[in-house]
Design a protein around this nucleic acid. Structure first.
Lengths: 147, 147
DNA sequence: TTGCTCCTCACGTCACGTGAGGTGGC
DNA sequence: TTGCTCCTCACGTCACGTGAGGTGGC
């Protein structure tokens, strides 16, 4: 119930037990906790070729680059892309240059995605409008659903 | 390629070949066309207990009540409910009284659903905002994605 | 020995899509 | 016989959830 050391600790001090080899590695639980996703999700992304953590026996060891990559995957999801789309959007990542391209979106892709989301937004707004109408109808009928 | 007799005909003149018995019945294709859904969807709703068309051998015959029921199902989907939720929302339909309750939403359910949709709307709006920012970034960088 | 973290199958969920293979009436 | 509409399996898709059963180090 102590909330004092909540989140950033996992960022600053990852996977102490695997840090001995100079490179800091994250366990699957480290990343799951930091990004508030499940272990299953991490393994699923790997099965889809989005993540390729090192192995130490059966254990997955995520590097700092893996962690960055994961943040891009989750960013892509927030933007409404499918995992297949995200896969191609971050395909040219880790290109030996140490650069972080992030999601490589073209202007075309931006526009198409915005269009898609605008349509979804419109559908939701229409639904909300109708539900509000239904709600007031339920009130004005007799003051309640008395039948 | 003749578009003159497009849609409403199916409403006014349903399933002529099964109309002989006084009651007009709709075929699965009649309803699929009228509501712009697939045959598969109709059969799926039936498998989930949402629809129970008469049978003539293997053929499905949908009554006017079935058609009304289907319209409620699709309305429920528009409002963002799952099929399981819709199932219970229209459970007390066809209650021998000829009344059409439609979706039996309580005020509580209205409010909860509106909340859900508002959250979804917010997520989408945030995504759109970020995509617009990304888009302008792509423009102001060098006038294009020139590496 | 118990407890924790990790692992690999593998089936379940949601709302259908998509063939495969077969039937019935014009 | 061809063509159309209808049918029943049954596997595939999407993004995981959810046990089951087992391992390894403190």
């Amino acid at each position: 119930m102590d909330l004092s050391g909540r989140t950033p600790q996992w960022v600053a001090e990852p996977a102490t037990q695997y840090e001995g080899n100079r490179k800091p590695y994250f366990t699957i639980s480290d990343l799951a906790r930091e990004f508030s996703i499940t272990l299953r999700a991490l393994r699923f992304y790997e099965s889809k070729g989005l993540l390729r953590p090192k192995r130490e026996g059966n254990l997955r060891l995520y590097s700092a680059d893996d962690r960055t990559r994961l943040s891009h995957i989750l960013k892509g999801k927030q933007l409404g892309f499918t995992l297949a789309e995200i896969r191609s959007l971050i395909a040219n990542e880790g290109g030996a240059e140490g650069v972080e391209p992030g999601l490589q979106l073209s202007r075309e892709q931006c526009i198409e995605q915005i269009k898609l989301l605008e349509r979804q937004k419109k559908d939701i707004e229409d639904a909300i409008t109708e539900l509000r109408r239904t709600y007031t109808d339920l009130y004005t009928r007799t003051g309640g659903p008395a039948d």
